[in-house]
Design a binder for these strands. Structure first.
Lengths: 197, 197
DNA sequence: CTACAATTCCTAGGCATATTAGGCAACTCA
DNA sequence: TGAGTTGCCTAATATGCCTAGGAATTGTAG
């Protein structure tokens, strides 16, 4: 009996690759077993169950994603940083749809709390916005707006919700200009302050 | 043998309700069968298969959703309309998470092309933006920005991605003000035009 | 090097779900 | 009331998740 040489890491990475291929929700333990030439049951020595595997993929994906974003942001500030951040964000989602989807699976609060990567992405977003001169609670509001926009765009693009494929890139850039403008004029868009000013 | 009185419509509506309860991806034919007190196989007289059922739920949800948005928009214009639109959008997502998720399942292009509701939502968005004086290609760009932001916010909220539950409402309103501001100043956020003007 | 321990993988089996084929019973309507 | 349609059934197959318990392989300590 020749062993397949399975490892938790190896299984998780293969699962992430398969997610990119066939969609995160279609990753299956039996398929993973086939890929490694072992029986289903053998995988349970390496992951607890399907949910555990998914969580691990989510954490792996978040790690890789955060690294990409951090790299893109290095040494940039202001609009440059915003464009770089957005580019890294969307490129990851396009290149790795399965990993991207994994990143947004509903995680146990405990697992999520232990994830450096998820926290890091939040921090990177915050630091990006600090450059726009935002402070709490505007900061949280703006972080949410950015995440929503990016996530919404990436998700809609992924499911093919946008009609003309040619325009997608242009619309994205236009959205980024709009976001930059919004962030630069954050205070003026707040009626409670603009009324006074 | 007393008949259960199944109908395609009845099955689809029950599936939509179940989606709201347990999540769209957890809707199962066997569970539906149990709910109606029939055997699994009996459902195949009313829907082709699971995929078919899901598509039908998606179309039903889109219908209901479009109706809500249309009702909210009636007689409003400008920022009022934006707020109403956004409110109806998000309320639907919060009240009917399963139906909402269904609306964003990946549909066969043919099915999607035949869906009045999906088209109607697009039209409603467009008409909303026409009031801001936008024309193509700005219109398409802005429609995509709006959809992305709304969808992103609703999705992230649904999976509990936002930390403090108390602030979610406030952040949402702040996002809407920001969007309104962006739309009102759409041209100025475009570098290719702002440079000239 | 060898014996014990831990680890990897297997067989066997149970349960849930999706789906097809073919049949009988219950409705419908001429 | 009788023919045809439809609604629901039984039976059977396939796939997937998961557990229990056993055998082979590898690691380790004497």
């Amino acid at each position: 009996m020749v062993r397949a040489g399975l490892t938790t890491d190896r299984v998780v990475e293969a699962a992430a690759d398969m997610a990119d291929d066939v969609g995160f929700e279609n990753v299956t333990l039996s398929a993973m077993a086939r890929r490694f030439g072992v029986k289903d049951a053998s995988l349970y020595s390496h992951v607890k169950n399907l949910k555990d595997l998914r969580e691990r993929v989510a954490l792996l994906a978040a790690d890789e994603w955060a690294a990409r974003i951090a790299a893109a942001l290095a040494g940039r500030a202001g609009k440059d940083a915003l464009i770089a951040f957005a580019g890294a964000y969307r490129t990851f989602a396009v290149d790795h749809p399965g990993r991207y989807a994994a990143t947004f699976m509903q995680l146990d609060p405990a697992v999520l709390a232990g994830s450096t990567a998820h926290r890091r992405i939040l921090e990177l977003t915050s630091s990006l916005l600090l450059a726009y001169g935002l402070a709490e609670p505007d900061l949280t509001d703006a972080v949410r707006l950015l995440r929503s926009t990016f996530h919404g765009y990436a998700s809609l693009e992924a499911i093919g919700a946008f009609g003309h494929p040619r325009d997608i890139e242009a619309s994205w850039e236009r959205a980024l200009h709009a976001l930059h403008f919004t962030l630069e004029n954050w205070a003026s868009s707040d009626p409670s302050r603009a009324a006074r000013g």
